[in-house]
Amino acid sequence: MDTKKLEKGLIHVYTGNGKGKTTAALGQGVRTAGAGFKVLMVQFLKGDDTGELYSIEKLAPDFQLIRFAAMNKFYFQLNDEEKLQVQRSAREGLEVVKKHLKEENYNLIIMDEIMAVLYNKIVDLAEVLTILKNKPDHIEMVLTGRNAPEALIDIADYVTEMGMVKHPFEKGVYARKGIES
């Protein structure tokens, strides 16, 4: 795939307990695709049907989304067989990221919810750090999710922490189609 190159590719981390990490990553992806660059978003641990799937579909072929280890409940709620399947799928997602970095098919690669993968020890932090340290210089990376490890924060060029001050779920209002999903 012949891809024009970014001048310099940096690493972003969007973390914290507040809403907006995936949304910020999507916004960066839309900006990048709009400038004529290629974007890949690899989503880990997300299985719900969300509005972003359809928005990204409209931006294709410049913005691709692939999901791995889709779940409809928390990792700790899974039985051993389900956990094994999630681990295999997450591993597959990492291999896809490595492949596209090696082949330099995209200018921006988003690893959405990679922090949850790390937090639940589904994938080893050292492997993700190695991926980032060895990425081509002209490829931008965005990593999202709560509980970013300190080592990941240290290697990143941008770190944004989304802080929750107030959220409607505190009043019993759950994810609404088109707003949170």
Score class of each variant (00 low, 15 high):
Asp2Arg: 10
Lys4Ile: 11
Lys5Asp: 08
Leu6Ala: 11
Leu6Arg: 11
Gly9Arg: 06
Ile11Asn: 10
His12Lys: 12
Val13Lys: 07
Tyr14Trp: 02
Asn17Tyr: 12
Gly20Asn: 13
Lys21Trp: 13
Lys21Cys: 04
Thr23Phe: 14
Thr23Asn: 05
Ala25Leu: 09
Val30His: 09
Val30Glu: 07
Arg31Thr: 03
Thr32His: 10
Ala33Cys: 05
Ala35Ile: 00
Phe37Met: 06
Lys38His: 02
Lys38Thr: 00
Val39Thr: 10
Leu40Gln: 06
Val42Cys: 14
Gln43Lys: 03
Phe44Leu: 02
Leu45Phe: 07
Gly47Trp: 00
Asp49Cys: 04
Asp49Ile: 04
Thr50Ile: 14
Gly51Tyr: 11
Gly51Ser: 10
Tyr54Ala: 09
Ser55Val: 14
Phe63Gln: 00
Leu65Phe: 10
Phe68Ser: 11
Phe68Gln: 01
Ala69Thr: 13
Ala70Asp: 04
Met71Gly: 05
Met71Ile: 12
Met71Val: 13
Asn72Arg: 13
Asn72Gly: 15
Asn72Trp: 12
Lys73Phe: 13
Phe74Lys: 08
Tyr75Thr: 07
Gln77Lys: 13
Leu78Ile: 02
Asp80Ser: 12
Asp80Pro: 04
Glu81Cys: 10
Glu82Thr: 08
Leu84Trp: 07
Val86Asn: 09
Arg88His: 09
Ala90Asp: 03
Ala90Met: 08
Gly93Lys: 00
Glu95Arg: 07
Val97His: 02
Lys98Pro: 01
Glu103Asp: 11
Asn105Glu: 01
Tyr106Phe: 08
Asn107Pro: 05
Glu113Ser: 00
Ile114Ala: 02
Met115Asn: 11
Met115Thr: 04
Met115Ser: 06
Leu118His: 06
Lys121Asp: 11
Ile122Glu: 13
Val123Ser: 14
Val123Leu: 15
Val123Gln: 15
Ala126Trp: 10
Val128Trp: 03
Leu129Glu: 09
Thr130Val: 00
Lys135Glu: 05
His138Phe: 09
Met141Thr: 08
Gly145Tyr: 10
Arg146Ser: 01
Arg146Tyr: 01
Asn147Leu: 04
Asn147Gly: 01
Asn147Lys: 14
Pro149Gly: 05
Pro149Gln: 04
Pro149Cys: 00
Pro149Asn: 07
Ala151His: 00
Asp157His: 06
Val159Cys: 13
Thr160Arg: 03
Met162Val: 02
Val165Glu: 11
His167Thr: 08
His167Pro: 04
Glu170Phe: 15
Lys171Val: 04
Gly172Leu: 11
Val173Leu: 15
Gly178Phe: 06
